[in-house]
């Protein structure tokens, strides 16, 4: 499997990462090496292995529908760079 620099840049764009041309080349190469290593898995006999999403043998971890304490508005906004009217002030995004 081959990964192109163009693919790396478009993934970077939707992940809001800024990559220079040089970084793009470097990462493309690094990802290529990783992908080649995973190719090795294809040589294994896995027809009897079930597809695995979770590595831990857990299921149905539930909480009851019961209220617990919330943060106060001051606590919630404590780390906010800018605050207005009890809200986080954020740049306009369309």
């Amino acid at each position: 499997m081959k990964i192109t620099e163009q693919e790396v840049h478009s993934v970077a764009e939707i992940a809001r990462l800024e990559l220079t041309q040089e970084e793009g080349q470097k990462i493309t190469h690094a990802l290529q090496v990783i992908l080649e290593q995973t190719e090795a898995l294809k040589r294994l006999e896995i027809s009897k292995v079930k597809p695995t999403v979770y590595v831990l043998p857990l299921q149905n971890v539930f909480s009851e529908d019961q209220l617990d304490k919330c943060l106060t508005q001051e606590q919630a906004l404590g780390n906010a760079p800018e605050v207005e009217k009890g809200c986080f002030k954020v740049p306009r995004i369309i």
């Binding site: 529908d65 209220l67 617990d68 304490k69 919330c70 943060l71 508005q73 919630a76 809200c87």
Partner: peptide, 25 residues
């Protein structure tokens, strides 16, 4: 009564950012 992944209330209205916890933030 509570949110889907934490124990904050789902009640409509309420002061801004008072039905929140570190989880839903």
């Amino acid at each position: 009564k509570t949110k889907i992944f934490c124990s904050c209330p789902t009640e409509f209205g309420g002061e801004e950012n008072t039905h929140v916890c570190p989880g839903c933030l």
